[in-house]
Structure formats: structure tokens, C-alpha cells
């Protein structure tokens, strides 16, 4: 009964992983042949190289721009929409809607919003006057704003996911906890900090892990929105885009691509362990 799963996972996950680790200490010709082992120092060299460091820096920045904001927005909206207001169902539908957009769909929508020539914002007169930078140079073309612009698209695209999860988490909080707190005289704000948030612990931990790993694996949005640019600073070249994207100095070097990919795996591994052990122990699991 295990055989089918085992066959697939060994063939397409474990074997390629081992191969990639081996390939990562080799250098090959541009066609991926005639590989020669250079030793595992190659991993250290790659990790400390300025290109990888730059890509890693961008990736961390990207995660810091998207994860906390996505979390705050998701929790905030879910709490707001959890109240018994008339018509709140409509709002819930709206906030959940972006879960239906794939990376390609969401990125193209935002490309059409932000593109400085044919984009929406750049072609609306009053927006232009309010924010001249949407046109010249354009948020996606300015090294100072490009990563923020990509992050906006990503936060938007992830909002549905976060919102649905947190909403479900809220509904799992026993009502008597709130009532008890209210009887103790706790107001809305107080109850949010002392009841709602702690009870959401496991949900929030999960959201953080998923959003972080999405940020660390960002590729589609980068390719569609900025191609790793704007030049010269490669301001949106994340690690994944550095490995597989256009105009990378290692695009003709399958060995170095593997080196960088394995490093990305190790980074994600460290992050997962950090998040699960460091944070997980502190998360309140209700009863």
C-alpha cells in the first residue's frame, strides 16, 4: 500500500534532492555535461558570493514586506468582518476572493495597474497628479520602490488565503471565553489581545510558515512584474529568480544553479525548524 507513494516520492523528491546536492559541488560545461567535482567548498563560496548575498537580502526584505503586513491585514479584516454587522457576508466574499487568483493572474492584474506606460494608474489624470512617480519613473522601474510594488501585489494575492484561515480560526474560539472576559469588564481591544490573538496561535503560526515559504520561493510574480530588475541593483532578484530567471550570471552553469538551489532548501529548512520549535512552543493551543 505504501509502494505507489514511496515510488513517487523517492523518484521525484528524494533522488533528485541527493543528485542536486552532489551536482551542487560540481562545475559542468554550458550544456550540463563533463561535470567535474570541485568540493563542497563550492557551497560556502556560493553562500558568501555577492550575487547570492544580494539575492538573499532581497528575499529576506521581500519576506519582511509581505509576511507581517499580510498577517496584520488578514487578522484585522477577519476580526472586523467577524462582528455581526448587516451585510458582513458580502465583505467576507470580497476579502476571500483573491484566493482564486493564481500567481500569473494576480501578477498580470497588478502589472496592468502599475505599468508606467499602458498601466491604469499612470493613465488616470488625478492619480498622476497625486503620485507623479506612478508615471515617471514608475513604481516597478524605480529601484527604490520596485520591491514594495511587487510586495503589494503579493500581499493582495495572499489576502484571501490569510483571511479565510483566520476567519475559520476565529470561529473556532469558544464563545464563553469572550463572554467571561466581557463579564470581567474587558473591552473590545482588551479582549482582542487577551482572548482572540492567543487563541489564534496555531492558525497564525501556520499562516506565517506558509507566507514565509511563499516569499522565499517567489518566482512568477518577479518574472511577470520586474524580471528581477530594475537594473542596476537587481532590486527584485530573489534567490529563486537568481537561480532560474533571466540575465543571471549562473544561467549557463547548472552546477552553480544546483548549489544555489540546495542553499535555498537549507535556508527554508532552518526557517521551518526555527518557526516550529522557537515559536511553536510558545503558541497557545487552547486547552
Amino acid at each position: 500500500m505504501l509502494a505507489p507513494s514511496l515510488l513517487i516520492l523517492v523518484t521525484f523528491v528524494l533522488y533528485p534532492l541527493v543528485r542536486a546536492v552532489w551536482l551542487g559541488q560540481q562545475r559542468c560545461d554550458n550544456f550540463g555535461n563533463n561535470c567535474v567535482s570541485r568540493g563542497f567548498d563550492q557551497y560556502v563560496d556560493m553562500f558568501t558570493s555577492r550575487e547570492f548575498q544580494s539575492a538573499l537580502g532581497v528575499t529576506v526584505k521581500y519576506a519582511l514586506l509581505t509576511v507581517p503586513l499580510g498577517l496584520v491585514l488578514g487578522v484585522g479584516l477577519a476580526v472586523l468582518a467577524d462582528k455581526h454587522l448587516r451585510g458582513v457576508g458580502v465583505f467576507r466574499t470580497v476579502f476571500s476572493s483573491t484566493v482564486a487568483t493564481s500567481v500569473a493572474v494576480a501578477s498580470l492584474m497588478w502589472l496592468f495597474l502599475l505599468q508606467p506606460d499602458v498601466g491604469v494608474l499612470a493613465n488616470v489624470g488625478w492619480i498622476n497628479e497625486l503620485f507623479p512617480s506612478v508615471k515617471d519613473p514608475g513604481w516597478l522601474r524605480d529601484p527604490g520602490t520596485a520591491l514594495v510594488a511587487v510586495s503589494m501585489s503579493s500581499v493582495w494575492a495572499n489576502l484571501g488565503f490569510t483571511f479565510i484561515l483566520v476567519t475559520a480560526g476565529l470561529q473556532g474560539i469558544p464563545r464563553d471565553l469572550h463572554e467571561a472576559a466581557a463579564i470581567d469588564g474587558a473591552g473590545d481591544v482588551r479582549r482582542f489581545w487577551s482572548v482572540t490573538l492567543p487563541m489564534l496561535g496555531p492558525t497564525l503560526l501556520f499562516v506565517v510558515i506558509v507566507l514565509t515559504s511563499r516569499a522565499f520561493q517567489a518566482y512568477g510574480e518577479i518574472e511577470l512584474l520586474t524580471q528581477g530588475g530594475p537594473a542596476p541593483y537587481d532590486s527584485t532578484t530573489t534567490v529563486t529568480y537568481f537561480i532560474y530567471g533571466r540575465n543571471s550570471v549562473i544561467s549557463g552553469d547548472v552546477g552553480l544553479q544546483a548549489t544555489a538551489a540546495v542553499l535555498l532548501f537549507l535556508l527554508l529548512l532552518v526557517l521551518s525548524v526555527l518557526q516550529l520549535s522557537g515559536l511553536g512552543r510558545r503558541v497557545h493551543y487552547g486547552d
Partner: peptide
């Protein structure tokens, strides 16, 4: 444990080898 470990392997690492396969 081996099964669970595969959850931690991102697609990016296996991509090149899988394509050849």
C-alpha cells in the same frame, strides 16, 4: 519520518534533475 521530510524539499531543488528524468 522520511515521508514528512519530503514536505520540506522545495520544488526549486528538484527541478533540474526532474526535468532530465
Amino acid at each position: 519520518g522520511v515521508f514528512l521530510a519530503t514536505l520540506l524539499v522545495p520544488l526549486e531543488v528538484t527541478l533540474v534533475v526532474n526535468r532530465r528524468l
